[in-house]
Amino acid sequence: MIRALLPLLAAIAALLPSPAFAYWEYGHETVAQIAYRNVKPQTRVAIQRMLARSSMLETPECPARTIEEASVWADCLKKLGPRFSYTSSWHYQNVNVCKPFDLKSACRDGNCVSAQVERDMKLLKDPKVPLRERIQALAFLIHFVGDLHMPLHAGDHDDLGGNRVRAAYGIYAPERLNLHSVWDGWLAERAISTPPSLVRLYPQAERTPIMAGTVEEWSRESWTIARDVTYATALGGDPCGPTPQRVRLDEATIERLVDPSRLQVVRGGLRLARLLDEALG
């Protein structure tokens, strides 16, 4: 039934505007919802109290009244022009998958996603920081942990995280589609929509190993997935091989990528929960 509807769905999708948000709204909102379900009760109360004061951010075009709204706030800022243009490089880190992992070079002066996650944690933990800045740090943290777990925000093949690689997603292949937008949106939405729901309270035995580690270790993990899964799949097994004129992900390939994509969303959500508990709980 689903296969029979694919041509119709592709035709409808072709009429839609290209996605405006990194990891799309669905991906970021799901990461945030997983975190919200798995934080301590006192952390949940603290989040609610802070976001209830989010009007202090003075971004009425980009509300952050709920954790779902906060999860896409950092992307919404892009439409505000020069006011927040300095944050554009905070959403990713272009660490070359064909060279040894080198986060330091990719994060000069703190202008990368992992450095901003650590910065936001310091601001949130410090009660001496003005409330407005802590609310902003909270919204940024919720978003950037999601970005860190999208592999093409963590790994690069001299192609701006797949943005320069034209791609076909099943039968859907408009000119504007690229490898980054496939993983950022189409694949993420398919993965999240695949049952069972990812938004649930995870048992401690399942949470503990996922929540372990440092931000740098999570960065290396996402970078490894970019190399061994994202690029290896797209480039015929060799992540450092030549890039074809257009990468083609057929239905069988897409089905194989659903589980790795789902796992990254879960990791992002549970690790965000850990960070929020550390900062606010």
Rank of each mutant, 00 (worst) to 15 (best):
I47Y: 00
M150Q: 15
R207Y: 08
D158S: 08
R164F: 02
A14N: 12
I171Q: 12
H180R: 04
T43L: 08
A191W: 15
V265I: 15
E25Y: 00
G81V: 01
C112M: 00
Q264W: 09
D228N: 14
E68D: 05
A32L: 07
V117Q: 06
E25G: 12
L249H: 06
V113F: 00
I210F: 06
S89W: 07
Q42L: 14
D250L: 07
T243G: 00
E206K: 10
L272T: 03
Q48Y: 08
I225N: 13
H149L: 12
S197T: 11
K104N: 15
P60W: 09
K128P: 07
G241R: 03
M56D: 01
P82S: 05
N178C: 00
S219P: 08
V199W: 01
A32H: 05
R220P: 10
Y92H: 14
R262H: 10
E175T: 02
L152C: 11
D158G: 06
G81L: 00
W183M: 09
P244D: 05
R166C: 03
E175R: 00
V95S: 09
D228K: 15
E216P: 03
G110S: 02
R246A: 13
M211K: 10
L8K: 04
L280A: 08
Y169W: 11
R119N: 03
G170N: 08
V117C: 04
S181W: 14
A64H: 04
E206I: 03
E118A: 05
L152S: 10
V165F: 05
L57Q: 01
V31N: 11
S85R: 05
I12H: 02
E189K: 13
F144N: 15
E68F: 01
Q245E: 12
R49E: 15
L131V: 15
R3A: 12
A14C: 12
